[in-house]
Nucleic acid binder design. Structure first.
Length: 497
DNA sequence: AAAAAAC
């Protein structure tokens, strides 16, 4: 269901076929290999526009087929417009795709490789944390398409193993995340290396004022494509919240996983240390868990992701390195061990499940301290979230054998965690029945959700009804993020294209 | 307050 009319109107995408776009037989064959027949809504909108050579500002939730939406027409364009023979290199880089995280770059590269499989086009992925040599070799051998994280890309440029002077198409994937991560200066450097005449595609999950500004600076009269309300949560995802004590969170996670018999679940932690500890604890409890975060070596990160995808590891405990874009087939459930500090990350995290039309559950553990975070999330997704008791969970340390003292437990397996308070030890242990501690209900859980004011809503944010044109931008009434002045300053100095 | 990214 196409909600935005900025792109050419489309009939029901289900009636459109990939064959209708005039894609080359090689591309169609690759699609057939994967069993793809009909484009998703964003693909139906993006493919024709990209093929026309237009710039694109795309808003799409992950799991909507965004990657194919830009990859397929790019491959087609590169095939159709043969390399300008005047170029010195036989294989200049003609398309560049930038992503914020290494895993995402790797994943996009896998897709591009699959789609271009039957074409003569060559592609490679370039990101940090890995040996330069193989990347250098691949680049020297010649590739038309490079997928990269910004830092390592610039490194290769500096080493003269990569030349971007012939690059005709630039894709910025998860652009809002790249801004969050402070990639703006790198983006500027990279763009300065590209020909002035080129096609730009920018994808962002949200349309913050900063993103709009970035789009204004980098894009040339872009076509706006939007298939879902920004900041909306996927309808296929059921959001469940359980209130727990801080001290019970690890056991609560194990309990949920066991009760539900989960064989594939990502558990999000706010900290790298927390992720490692939780993974260790789950493993100790006999569950197959592995952690992925930025303090692990890139080899470890990739191994963890790989074994999770293969099913050898059933629980991937992750920081927000895995919050965006990662496509794990048939992931039925994600668990927020911590509520994210940034409400937008909540949307991204739970977007790992319920992908490609499947349904999924997003379970969040909520403690008393999380009231503010929860309120922020409710405000962002414009939906009331009600934490409930976790069924069948004994809030006290029920799994600890009687012989082992609580003190030993808190020292041994729980590392730096503080001991349970005395009043938390009341509930009896090992019992199967839920705790009779209803009297201790925190008032904030009961407080009705009330949005502050009617909330200024921009056209892009409010598309329950189709909008005919991007409304007069709801003046950048953004939260006064500390990052903002800096960003404005940086963008201010950019040449408008 | 924390995470991500080049060496």
């Amino acid at each position: 269901m196409s909600e935005n009319q900025s792109a050419p109107a489309q009939a029901n995408p289900a009636s459109i076929r990939f064959e209708d776009f005039g894609l080359s037989p090689e591309i169609l064959r690759a699609l057939a290999d994967q069993g793809y027949v009909n484009p998703t809504p964003i693909q139906a909108q993006a493919i024709p526009v990209v093929l026309q050579g237009r710039d694109v500002m795309g808003a799409a939730q992950t799991g909507t087929g965004k990657t194919a939406g830009f990859s397929l027409p790019i491959i087609q364009l590169l095939l159709a417009h043969a390399n300008s023979s005047a170029s010195p290199a036989r294989h200049p880089v003609r398309a560049l795709i930038l992503t914020p995280t290494r895993e995402l770059a790797d994943q996009v590269a896998d897709n591009v490789k699959a789609y271009s499989r039957y074409t003569p086009l060559r592609s490679t992925v370039v990101f940090g944390g890995m040996d330069m040599a193989p990347q250098t070799a691949a680049l020297r051998a010649g590739v038309e398409i490079v997928i990269a994280t910004p830092g390592r890309l610039l490194d290769h440029v500096q080493q003269k193993t990569l030349n971007l002077s012939q690059t005709q198409i630039l894709v910025m994937d998860e652009a809002d995340r790249m801004l969050d991560m402070g990639f703006l200066p790198d983006l500027q450097r990279i763009i300065n290396l590209l020909p002035k005449q080129r096609q730009n595609l920018m994808f962002s999950a949200t349309f913050s004022p900063e993103i709009k500004k970035l789009a204004n600076s980098f894009l040339s009269s872009p076509v706006t494509i939007e298939v879902a309300r920004s900041n909306a949560t996927n309808e296929n995802v059921t959001q469940i919240l359980y209130k727990v004590e801080e001290e019970s969170k690890r056991r609560a996670v194990a309990h949920i996983i066991r009760e539900r018999g989960l064989k594939q679940v990502i558990v999000f932690s706010n900290t790298k240390i927390g992720a490692s500890r939780l993974a260790r604890e789950l493993e100790k409890q006999g569950l197959k868990a592995s952690a992925i975060h930025g303090d692990k070596s890139q080899a470890e990160r990739m191994a963890a992701l790989e074994s999770f995808k293969k099913g050898d590891v059933e629980i991937l405990v992750a920081t927000d390195v895995a919050a965006r874009g990662l496509d794990i087939a048939e992931l039925p459930c994600v668990i927020n061990y911590d509520l994210p500090y940034n409400a937008e990350d909540y949307v991204h995290r739970i977007g790992r499940t319920g992908r490609a039309g499947a349904s999924g559950d997003a379970i969040s553990l909520v403690t008393e301290k999380d009231a503010k975070l929860l309120a922020d999330i409710e405000k962002l997704i414009k939906k009331k979230l009600v934490p409930t008791e976790l069924p069948g969970f004994v809030a006290d340390a029920g799994h600890v054998s009687e012989g082992r003292s609580r003190r030993e437990e808190s020292r041994g397996s729980y590392g730096g965690e503080r001991r349970p308070r005395r009043d938390e030890e009341r509930g009896g242990r090992g019992a199967a029945a839920p705790l009779p501690r209803k009297e201790k209900i925190d008032p904030w859980f009961l407080k009705p959700y009330e949005p502050e004011k009617p909330a200024p809503v921009s056209a892009l944010e409010s598309s329950s009804a189709p909008t005919s044109a991007p409304a007069p931008a709801s003046k950048a009434a953004s939260s006064g993020k500390s990052q903002k002045p800096k960003l404005a300053a940086l963008l201010g100095g950019l040449p408008k294209r």
